[in-house]
Nucleic acid binder design. Structure first.
Lengths: 199, 199
DNA sequence: GTCTATACTCCGATAGAC
DNA sequence: GTCTATCGGAGTATAGAC
């Protein structure tokens, strides 16, 4: 897996997506570029355009996979959290922090404004499934209306995304800044927001 | 105040900072460029470098002013919120949303990683004063340790920054997406986090 | 399917005229 | 203090050879 390996043979399309995740995690969406991905893979800057017509399509593919993996991570965390609906939704907040800290592909990538016009049914499906999973977790916490469930999902995501962004921007002091620490705090905060009086 | 006005005469340094805020609010830190600021002001791309040696220094000046104005906005909101310490700190969350939605200059600008090495005493002073104001508001909510106050400030900022980021990324549905709506929700969420049992 | 080469655009920054 | 002009570098994307 050396840096200079050529991808004459393998599946460059998959490798491009994989390396895009690495670069997103390392440098964020801000500095993401198709050219840097190609460089990292040791292929020419033109090679990616055989597999993706433009930058947005590559990011769209990354976005779809991120939405799917994020949904799975959230579902797994909810299942690991036990039967209490509030605990299950709160666990989604912690899972979000961990997934996005590891991959750099959070809401800002999944729902990136620059991908808004992109026609990509696979991505649409994954983003919708992600939101459905979150709404189901929220609805399970009580006899809430759809609007209330949306608000609760948004609050949970806001907490998770806020902690994740501050972490990515290196706002937290070194000592208390492991991913698991931040994830635990995001989870705890979400738990309080979901059911302030409960527990 | 037309687009084509020349700034031969006036205070270009101040105009550069002012226009930097406009561009940050319009396009975010991601797309901020010195060249675009110069273009907007109708001066050459070289002109800004008579007033700021490089891009980081211009952003540093913006950062210092943002920290100062944000601190004032937060202090004013706290005073308007009344005597209850929890209400006062929660009001900081709403003030953050409103200020950053208007100016684009939030934590990610004030504490931008790319400005970390910047030697700028004025900016240091403003960022420190901002944090002091927040820590004072947090400490007033109860007999907390310094560490607990830091955690509370971080939670308040995480909520505010999360809502603000989601708003900036156009994540919220059109209908419920006025700045004041989002600010109110951030304030309410912060209020719950600060004193879940209170009120 | 990947390459080299290239065109285009944008940015940060500098040199020197006025 | 601002200008014009320019350099070096980055990125997106395309054309055409292999």
């Amino acid at each position: 897996m050396s840096e200079n390996r050529r991808y004459h043979h393998g599946d460059l399309r998959a490798a491009l997506i994989e390396t895009s995740f690495l670069l997103l995690a390392e440098q964020g969406l801000e500095r993401f570029s198709v050219a840097a991905v190609a460089r990292r893979l040791g292929v020419s800057s033109a090679a990616p355009y055989r597999h993706f017509p433009d930058r947005a399509r590559l990011l769209g593919a990354v976005s779809a996979i991120a939405a799917r993996d994020l949904r799975v991570a959230i579902a797994d965390a909810a299942d690991a959290a036990g039967p209490d609906p509030a605990d299950r939704l709160a666990a989604a907040s912690g899972a979000y922090v961990r997934y996005v800290a590891r991959t750099g592909a959070g809401i800002h990538v999944v729902y990136a404004a620059e991908l808004y016009d992109l026609q990509d049914d696979g991505r649409r499906e994954q983003t919708r499934a992600l939101m459905t999973t979150l709404l189901d977790l929220a609805s399970a916490t009580g006899p809430r209306s759809y609007e209330a469930a949306v608000l609760l999902v948004e609050a949970t995501l806001a907490v998770a995304h806020g902690y994740t962004s501050l972490y990515a921007d290196r706002f937290f002091a070194r000592r208390s800044s492991t991913v698991d620490d931040i994830a635990a705090r995001a989870c705890e905060a979400a738990r309080i927001l979901i059911a302030p009086s409960g527990r």
